[in-house]
Simulated assay, not measured.
Amino acid sequence: MAVSPTTTAHTTTVQNPRLRVLNKLRAKETALMTFIAIPSVRHAQIIALTGLDGVIVDCEHGHIGDEQMHNSVSAISALGVSPIIRVRGPAPENLKRALDTGAHGLMIPMINTAEEAQSVVTYSKFPPLGLRGQGSAFPAIGHGLTTPEYMKSANETLLTIVQIETKQGVENVEEIAAVPGVDYLFIGPNDLAQSLLGYAPAKGDEPVFLEAIDKIVAAARKHGKWIGRLVNDGPQAAKAAKTFDSLAITGDTKAITNWYTEQIKCVRE
């Protein structure tokens, strides 16, 4: 089923102050996010209170099942921050379960073709634009709306974020970026480097890697889509903000490990 939305997250006139990441992007301000992999409502709240615009609940690599996915989204959105779910993969049942939490957007890993991107859009949109089903009160709650209000606005306010993180994805990025309803391309630099270079620690300055980054950015700009990527820390984010619309600054597990490692080092050295 082809989806050709006439109004998208880029062009919507819907005003909802709760949609913090979308509002930042539309205002041309850098939207800052991070990944969380630890399944805890209190943990989600603590991360949401740091000043971030969005928190990506990582159901692909994180230790997060359906119950904690729902609980984390509820906790994050209640604090005025946008919950984004990185789903396990593009299967329709994964998209449905994630959307029914009330997430403000979905991030879909390992998108390699325009056909895969089109399928994601189809199963993320309500009819007549897609095949998304409705049967839950929770999505509206996450947006601070009644169910009828949510039904009217969801197709044009939910962020559909596809990850470009393979050699094949880079080869097909022009076609992927052209798919109507794809709002945002997100670069997964670790998997992208592995796909391009093989399993070796990437320095980030390899010509083939930098060329791939440039190609993804150019495709997003050409087709009017937002572009973001993962970075390791604040200084990298400040530098990358000159190029990217949105950035995910590391993830909770790495941040905790790095902080404690540095503090203990101060004592023992």
Rank of each mutant, 00 (worst) to 15 (best):
G102W: 05
R97L: 11
L99T: 05
S119Y: 07
E116K: 01
G133I: 01
R86S: 12
L145Y: 08
P109R: 05
P139G: 04
R97A: 14
E115I: 09
P127V: 02
G142K: 03
I85Q: 07
L95Y: 04
G142P: 11
Q118I: 07
A137L: 14
E93W: 13
G102I: 00
D100I: 06
V120T: 07
F126C: 04
E115C: 06
R132L: 01
G130C: 10
Q134D: 13
G135E: 03
S124P: 13
P127Y: 10
R86G: 12
M107V: 14
I111C: 02
T147C: 02
P139A: 00
D100N: 12
I111V: 13
A140I: 11
L129I: 14
H104C: 06
M107G: 03
G133E: 08
G142N: 09
T147A: 00
E115L: 09
T146D: 02
L106R: 03
T101L: 04
L129M: 12
T122I: 12
K125G: 04
P128S: 10
M110A: 08
T147H: 00
S124M: 10
T101I: 08
H143I: 03
E116F: 03
T147I: 01
R97W: 09
Q134S: 14
P148L: 04
V87A: 00
G144S: 10
S136V: 08
A91C: 12
K96T: 14
V120Y: 01
I108P: 04
T122P: 05
A98Y: 06
L99K: 01
P92S: 06
N112G: 06
S136W: 04
T122Q: 12
E93K: 11
R88Y: 15
S124Y: 09
T101N: 01
S119L: 13
K125F: 01
V120I: 12
T146P: 03
A114G: 10
I108M: 04
M107I: 10
G130N: 06
V121C: 00
N94Q: 15
I111F: 04
N94T: 11
P109H: 07
G135I: 00
K125D: 06
T113F: 09
E116N: 05
P90E: 09
G130W: 05
Q134R: 02
A91G: 15
D100E: 11
E115T: 15
F126H: 14
P148G: 04
V121R: 04
T113A: 02
G133S: 14
S124K: 05
R97Q: 12
A114S: 10
P109A: 05
A137H: 15
Q134F: 12
T101Y: 00
G105E: 05
P139C: 04
P139F: 00
L129F: 13
P127M: 08
A117L: 07
V121N: 01
G142M: 06
R132V: 02
A114T: 09
L129P: 01
L129R: 02
K96L: 14
E116R: 02
L129S: 08
P109L: 08
E93Q: 12
A137E: 11
S124A: 14
Y123Q: 06
A91E: 15
E115M: 08
E93H: 15
H104F: 11
E93A: 11
T146Y: 10
G89V: 03
Q134H: 11
D100T: 09
D100M: 07
